[in-house]
């Protein structure tokens, strides 16, 4: 019970922090959505040029809905908050005080970031999803919805662990903005945020579907839109869970090594 209190306090602080920058946050969301629009415009043109009714098994409606949903999901599942907060803490030196607090640093960072992302979830993702689902006449079943939610949660854990490892690189490399932004783009690409994984050439999509990134964008969107069947989705979810466990353990071990270095960095 005591722990819960502590964590909710951390989350509220993160919540407040997010809203302090609400204008900045709001506009960054706007541009993320606009980026989805770019893909949609391109595909509209592609379909018109090709004149086919479907490409790679995907009809235009499904494809457009895919891009909106994929980008909306990615706002929550591909979030570099963990890494950028860590970069901030390490650069400012706050990390040395954070490490000695009663709450373990990884936990602190995780819940703080969760709070930040929660705001995006509530204010953008959920309303957005509802709109898309209504407009695109997507049929949702309890099965697909629950699979979707589980996939999102697992994906969030995966990216938190990954960005945590990336964030800790700031101890060695000081300025990791470049790495963070490339990680964002790479993850989005590999996750199917730019092109649905199913459109990649056979050998490529097979590999991509084995990576942890698939769960962050493609699988949840595809599950919801019926591009992949529930049974296939369960398979991907399971693979994702395995990844989540591996990465969280890796992050914990890595952190143990890194935290020993922290006090020796800086003046």
């Amino acid at each position: 019970m005591i722990d819960l209190h502590k964590y909710s306090a951390i989350m509220v602080a993160g919540f407040k922090q997010e809203l302090v920058y609400r204008l900045d946050y709001f506009f960054s969301l706007v541009f993320r959505i606009l980026t989805a629009l770019v893909a949609i415009f391109v595909w509209i043109t592609v379909f018109r040029t090709t004149g086919a009714s479907s490409i790679g098994g995907l009809t235009p409606d499904v494809l457009y809905a895919y891009f909106f949903i994929a980008n909306a999901i990615s706002i929550f599942t591909i979030n570099d908050t963990v890494a950028s907060n860590m970069q901030d803490d390490i650069q400012s030196g706050n990390i040395t005080t954070s490490v000695v607090r009663p709450v373990k640093y990884p936990t602190l960072i995780f819940f703080n970031a969760l709070a930040n992302n929660f705001v995006g979830l509530l204010t953008v993702l959920i309303p957005f999803m509802i709109i898309i689902i209504l407009v695109a006449h997507v049929s949702i079943t309890p099965v697909t919805l629950s699979l979707f939610i589980l996939e999102i949660i697992t994906a969030y854990l995966i990216t938190s662990a990954l960005y945590f490892i990336i964030g800790s690189l700031a101890v060695y490399l000081v300025n990791i903005w470049g790495i963070i932004s490339v990680a964002d783009s790479l993850y989005l690409l590999l996750g199917g945020g730019v092109i649905p994984l199913i459109l990649f050439p056979g050998w490529a999509s097979q590999i991509l579907l084995l990576l942890p990134s698939q769960l962050s964008v493609y699988t949840p969107a595809a599950t919801l839109l019926g591009i992949i069947s529930p049974s296939a989705a369960i398979g991907y979810l399971f693979a994702g869970v395995v990844w989540a466990v591996v990465l969280v353990v890796l992050a914990a071990l890595w952190w143990k090594k890194v935290s020993q270095n922290i006090t020796s960095v800086g003046g």
Partner: peptide, 8 residues
């Protein structure tokens, strides 16, 4: 005081 919007 923020820069995420401009980055995006």
């Amino acid at each position: 005081r923020g820069s995420s919007a401009v980055s995006r």
